[in-house]
């Protein structure tokens, strides 16, 4: 009996994997049903539906990049403090001092790649008409996920606290000043007025809500940090679960009717 067989025969192994390795047809079916990670998939699937020239694999790569970003992101959090005093220096240290500081590169390039793959996934889904009934709602979920991906990338852009970061966010968040009715430089803000006092000022408008301050400062850094590391990833993870669930429930990967 080889060592491999000994391990596979042990009680521990069998308690984790509840069936023999997927060598034969029966076990290839069982593995899909009993493994938590694999049960996202159906047991069998249309041959053309998984052809790379049909799916482009972009949705899958996007999800994988989401996982890569989560893991590298958690690792980066060990060395990063979101304060004016430390943010920039911590990134500098990640680059120059930390062993395997390449995590930051992987995190940033992975984020760029994720934006591109999520666009291409949408492009493919549109071009194959896969948003058509019965998959309308899943397309809507997908659009929200696209928006969340962009927001994740956008909030992360501020964290290095360098010139690139602060000005990209300043330009981006200044648009919120101009929100109709709710921005202090937007059309119609005068309508929210109580006894001659404007309710919407630069310390109470939509931009202030986003920044937690009247200009991009430490409160903003903190807010974006929380949005980037906790709030948006949680929302995205929930929606991804719904997105996958609906792929299965709406009839699996789209195919000619």
């Amino acid at each position: 009996m080889s060592v491999g067989d000994y391990i596979r025969d042990s009680q521990i192994w069998k308690s984790v994997f509840r069936h023999p390795a997927p060598y034969d047809r029966r076990n290839r079916v069982v593995v899909m049903l009993t493994n938590f990670f694999l049960h996202l998939h159906p047991v069998s699937i249309k041959q053309q539906g998984i052809a790379l020239s049909y799916t482009w694999c972009m949705g899958g790569i996007t999800f994988f990049l989401f996982l890569v970003e989560t893991i590298t992101g958690v690792l980066l959090m060990f060395y990063y403090r979101p304060t004016l005093e430390w943010a920039f220096n911590d990134i500098l240290a990640l680059r120059d001092v930390t062993t395997l500081g390449i995590m930051r590169e992987i995190h940033r390039w992975g984020a760029h790649a994720m934006v591109i793959t999520v666009w291409l996934h949408m492009y493919r889904v549109f071009l194959t008409g896969s948003y058509k009934p019965p998959r309308e709602f899943n397309w809507v979920v997908g659009v929200i996920l696209l928006k969340l991906t962009l927001l994740l990338s956008f909030t992360g852009y501020l964290l290095p606290w360098d010139q690139l970061a602060i000005w990209a966010i300043t330009v981006g968040s200044n648009m919120a000043r101009a929100t109709p009715v709710l921005g202090h430089e937007g059309p119609g803000f005068q309508f929210l007025n109580l006894g001659g006092y404007d309710l919407i000022t630069n310390a109470s408008d939509a931009r202030f809500l986003l920044l937690g301050s009247r200009f991009v400062g430490e409160e903003t850094l903190n807010r974006f940090y929380i949005l980037h590391c906790v709030a948006i990833p949680l929302a995205a993870a929930g929606l991804i679960a719904i997105h996958f669930w609906r792929v299965r429930k709406d009839g699996g990967i789209s195919q000619p009717l």
Partner: peptide, 20 residues
């Protein structure tokens, strides 16, 4: 359409899982 041809069902393991 070409997608409707040769469109038998195959097992997810190994056809899809390995691609992934």
């Amino acid at each position: 359409p070409i997608e409707a041809e040769n469109n038998e069902k195959v097992l997810t393991w190994p056809d899809l899982v390995y691609t992934e």
